[in-house]
Structures are given as C-alpha cells and as structure tokens.
C-alpha cells in the first residue's frame, strides 16, 4: 500500500499546551480520509502542518515521501488546501480568482484560459465565469474554492470542514463533487463534524481527541475493531419470553435482552442479541427459532454507524 501522507510521532506544542501528541498517521494514495474529532482535538493543527503553514515542534510529516519540514516548497506543489473559511478578494471576478491562483502556480497562458473553463465546468460554475466572487452564495464560494485547490492538479486535497455553514443542498452538491474528485484518483483528507456524510464518502477514517490519534484505518476495519460484536434485532409474534430463554442457551450468543415490556408470557416482543459469531451461525439462530415453532417477523443485524463508533472511542473531552 503506497502512502501519500505519513506522520511519525508528530507533536505540536503551543507554549505549555500540547495540541498534537505523537500522532502517527498513514493515508494511502487514492483514499478519502475522514478526519474526525471534537473541536480543539488537533485536526486543523495536523492539516496546517501538512500544508506547511505550521512547523511541528517534534516528529516528522511526509507528503508523498517529502518532508514538510525540510522541503516545504516541493510539498506545496503536491497539495491543494481549503481552509475552514473562504477568504474573498473584493472586486475580483470568478475567472480572475482562478486565473490568479493558476498564475501563482506557474501555469502559463493560453493554458490558463482553458484550465479556468475546465475547473468551472468541474464545479458546475461555468455560468458564473464573469460574476464577482463576493456575490456568490456560500455553497458556490465553497465550490469555487475547491476549483482553486485543483488549479495545479495536486495529488492530495486537504479540506478543513468544507461543509461547515452550508445548507443541505450545497452539502449534497459538495459531497457529490468530492466523490467525483475521488473517482479522478485524488487523495482527499477531509475533516467534518457531519459524521453521517463522512461515513458515506470515506474509505478511511482517523479519530483524534485531545491531540491523540485514537484510531486510524479503513472504515470497515475500524468499525470491526471497535465494535467486534454484532447486534441482532428479532421480533417474534408471540411467546417472546420463551424465545428469550431459548436464545440464552445458544453458545454463540453473548447476551440477549427484551427491548419492550411484555403484557404477559404469551405476548410477542422485540429481542436484542449481542452476537459474536459468523454469518452462518447467525442464520442458524433464525432456523433454531423457527424450528422451535416461533413465528419471527423481523430478524436483522443492526449496523454500527460512524457516530456510534465515534462516541464509543472518544470521551467528549476538548484539549
């Protein structure tokens, strides 16, 4: 697995305050890496180190094998950065904004003109070519900002809270755009508070709290590692108490509870099973119940979501 971002014992102190504490981060090429953590956890600090805006106090950060400390100029050519705010140059048109940044990245005319068209097409702002940047909506500004980060065709996009302050429609558009960029082979490191969106979009996640990286890796692995037990919900039409007794005797079941209160022993009800077996073993639970004459009208595994994992791992403490 080829890594585009690596940090080794990355540490950042501001006076006596430790913002990052020996963070070891790995992001493979082509990944969409969701960086999650409460406010003040160290997400922005990590991103500012990777973008060469901040020199780490200790440790090392590499982008595509290049040290951000020793060769920041080379790193800047590889990254596109979108901070958690959108700075507007007054009296600048959309095309001038992109032209300026393309020029800064050393792209010469006439390539710049065609590039601007391509970028505006990518972010669906072609019709805003001559509009003033300050007149765009927040969602459009965010898309324009994303187009700006793409001006020099970087390998790695670092996006700090890109969906912050956007309305639901703009969020969906941004998410689609990030998916498109991912399909184009870009590695995307994105921080966000909206975990459900990250779960849909990310191939990898990192969870950070109080400057310490608590978990990092592929989403599925993290989910599995942090929630090794499956939760199965069962609804029986009658004799829920008897079903409970039966399930308690099965060896693959760690724990079983009634979810709702029963009117009497013959009443139906919902059961929750904490289960650590395989898929075959879970299907044998169902056949066991049916074999014993229970009428089952719901049998489903409840998926752990990112929010659940996040709450499980973090303590909600801000550094």
């Amino acid at each position: 697995m080829e890594l585009i971002v690596e940090t080794h014992n990355l540490t950042q102190r501001f006076g006596t305050h430790v913002a990052l504490n020996q963070v070891n981060l790995s992001i493979p090429k082509g990944a969409v890496y969701g960086f999650i953590g409460p406010n003040g956890a160290g997400k922005t600090t990590t991103m500012r180190i990777l973008t060469t805006l901040l020199q780490p106090t200790a440790g090392e950060a590499l982008v595509n094998g290049i040290s951000v400390r020793q060769n920041p100029d080379a790193v800047r050519k590889l990254i596109g950065f979108m901070p958690d705010y959108f700075g507007v140059y007054d009296s600048m048109r959309v095309w001038e904004y992109l032209d300026f940044f393309a020029h800064v990245y050393g792209i010469k005319q006439p390539r710049r003109t065609s590039l601007i068209q391509e970028l505006l097409q990518l972010v669906d702002l072609t019709e805003k070519h001559d509009s003033y940047v300050m007149n765009l909506s927040r969602g459009m500004k965010q898309r324009l900002s994303l187009a700006r980060t793409m001006a020099h065709d970087p390998s790695l996009l670092i996006l700090d809270e890109p969906a912050s302050g956007l309305d639901p429609r703009a969020r969906i558009e941004l998410r689609e755009l990030l998916r498109e960029l991912s399909r184009m082979g870009k590695t995307i490191m994105v921080s966000s508070h909206i975990l459900s969106e990250l779960a849909e979009m990310c191939s990898h996640i990192g969870i950070i709290e109080r400057g310490t990286l608590l978990a990092s890796g592929p989403v599925n692995e993290i989910m599995h590692d942090l929630r090794p037990h499956k939760l199965i919900e069962i609804q029986v039409v009658e004799r829920a108490m008897a079903a409970l007794q039966l399930l308690k005797q099965l060896p693959t079941i760690n724990d079983v509870n009634l979810i709702n209160e029963l009117a009497d022993d013959q009443a139906g009800g919902k059961l929750a099973i904490n289960f650590s077996g395989t898929s075959d073993e879970s299907s044998s639970i169902l056949s066991n119940l049916i074999g014993q004459g229970f009428r089952v009208n719901h049998f489903a595994e409840r998926q752990s979501d990112l929010e659940e994992v996040f709450l499980h791992v973090t303590q909600g403490v801000v550094a």
């Binding site: 973008t51 060469t52 800047r76 901070p83 990245y105």
Partner: peptide, 9 residues
C-alpha cells in the same frame, strides 16, 4: 486569504 496564498509555491 493569507493562508491560501502561503500554501502556494
């Protein structure tokens, strides 16, 4: 806008 300018080459 200074941060954005500072991450350019």
């Amino acid at each position: 806008t200074i941060d954005v300018l500072m991450v350019t080459p």
